[in-house]
Amino acid sequence: MIGATGDAQEDNTLEKDPSEWVSGDDPMTEAQKSYLDTLAKQAGEQLPGNLTKAEASQHIDRLKGITGN
């Protein structure tokens, strides 16, 4: 249980690994696709257009590191 009981685990990282997402196997969102397209162009990479949400998120994080965006 989380909330007022204070029983939640003290973890300052609120982000889950994309591979643990419940909806991680869903197709990437239009927002992810657009942002990933921009980052991939800046990095000079081509990526498949049928990525899952989790895969897109991982590529976004990786490309942000490459492009500095």
Results as ranks from 00 to 15, higher is better:
T13R: 05
G68R: 00
G44F: 02
K53P: 08
D11Q: 13
S57W: 06
R62E: 12
T5H: 08
T29V: 03
E30P: 08
A31H: 14
E10K: 06
G24V: 01
P48W: 08
L36T: 10
D11V: 10
A31E: 15
H59M: 07
S34H: 07
T5M: 09
T5Y: 09
A43C: 03
E45S: 10
S57N: 07
S34V: 13
A43Q: 00
L51W: 10
G44M: 02
T5E: 11
K16M: 04
G68W: 01
N50A: 06
G24T: 04
Q32E: 04
T29S: 15
D37A: 04
K64C: 05
A56C: 06
A54L: 02
G68C: 04
Q46K: 11
S57M: 02
Y35S: 10
G65A: 06
A31P: 01
G6N: 07
P48S: 06
I66S: 07
G3C: 06
A43L: 02
P48G: 02
P48L: 02
A54K: 04
T5W: 12
G24S: 01
T38R: 14
E10R: 11
E10M: 15
N50R: 09
L14F: 12
I66E: 14
N69C: 11
E30R: 15
P18S: 01
E15M: 15
Q58A: 13
P27E: 10
P48C: 06
Q9G: 11
S23P: 12
D26E: 13
N12P: 05
T5D: 14
I60W: 03
A8L: 04
E20F: 04
T13F: 04
A40V: 05
N12Y: 14
V22N: 09
S57D: 12
E10Q: 13
A56P: 05
L63E: 00
A40I: 13
D7G: 15
A43S: 01
A4T: 05
K53N: 04
L51P: 00
L39Y: 02
M28P: 00
Q46P: 06
G49D: 14
E45G: 03
K53L: 11
N69W: 10
M1E: 08
R62L: 11
D17M: 09
L36Q: 03
D25Q: 14
T5I: 09
T67Y: 01
Q58C: 06
T67S: 08
A8G: 15
L39N: 00
K53I: 07
I2E: 13
G44A: 04
D7Q: 12
L39V: 03
E20S: 14
G6H: 05
